[in-house]
Computed example of a mutant assay.
Amino acid sequence: MTVRHEPGASRFILNIDGSDDSAIAWYQTDPEGNLLMTHTEVPFAASGQGIGSRLARGLFDIARKDGLRLVLRCPFLGQWFARHPEYSDVVAG
């Protein structure tokens, strides 16, 4: 499973193997070009399987690689980041 950034849809998406479902993290872009991460959704059938964490790690890796800055308004992503401070270089607020 690989996370994809879809800027045209303002989201990061992770297709779940063996399923038609996807985990998605949505964002808005602020005037400085930061990505305001607003909401993360994992299908109920995939909950408890680490899918949200895979999505989070993948989007943080993409942000680092592409020089993006994230503002964490999504509670899930904020909690994930609290456990992974090694990504502080991509968090703007």
Rank of each mutant, 00 (worst) to 15 (best):
Met1Leu: 07
Thr2Asp: 15
Thr2Cys: 00
Thr2Gln: 14
Val3Tyr: 00
His5Gly: 08
His5Met: 06
Glu6Asn: 12
Glu6Arg: 13
Ser10Glu: 12
Ile13Arg: 14
Ile13His: 01
Ile13Glu: 14
Leu14Thr: 09
Asn15Leu: 09
Ile16His: 04
Ile16Arg: 00
Ile16Phe: 10
Gly18Tyr: 02
Gly18Trp: 01
Asp21Met: 03
Asp21Trp: 01
Asp21Asn: 10
Asp21Glu: 15
Ser22Thr: 09
Ser22Asp: 09
Ile24Phe: 09
Ala25Asp: 03
Trp26Gly: 02
Trp26Ile: 02
Gln28Ile: 07
Gln28Leu: 10
Asp30Lys: 00
Asn34Val: 08
Asn34Thr: 11
Leu36Phe: 06
Leu36Thr: 06
Met37Glu: 05
His39Ala: 08
Thr40Cys: 11
Val42Met: 01
Pro43Asn: 02
Phe44Met: 05
Ala45Trp: 00
Ser47Asp: 11
Gly48Glu: 01
Gly48Tyr: 07
Gly50Asp: 02
Gly50Tyr: 03
Gly50Ala: 07
Gly52Pro: 08
Gly52Glu: 04
Ala56Ile: 03
Arg57Val: 04
Leu59Lys: 05
Phe60Ser: 07
Phe60Ala: 07
Ala63Gln: 00
Ala63Tyr: 04
Gly67Trp: 01
Leu68Gly: 02
Leu68Met: 13
Arg69Phe: 11
Arg69Lys: 15
Leu70Ile: 10
Leu70Thr: 02
Val71His: 06
Leu72Ala: 08
Leu72Arg: 06
Leu72Asn: 06
Leu72Glu: 05
Arg73Ser: 10
Leu77Arg: 08
Gly78Ile: 09
Gln79Arg: 14
Trp80Phe: 15
Trp80Val: 11
Phe81Tyr: 15
Arg83Val: 08
Arg83Pro: 10
Pro85Lys: 14
Pro85Phe: 14
Pro85Thr: 13
Glu86Arg: 13
Glu86His: 12
Tyr87Met: 10
Ser88Pro: 02
Val90Cys: 11
Val90Met: 13
Val91Glu: 05
Val91Ala: 06
Gly93Asn: 14
Gly93Ser: 10
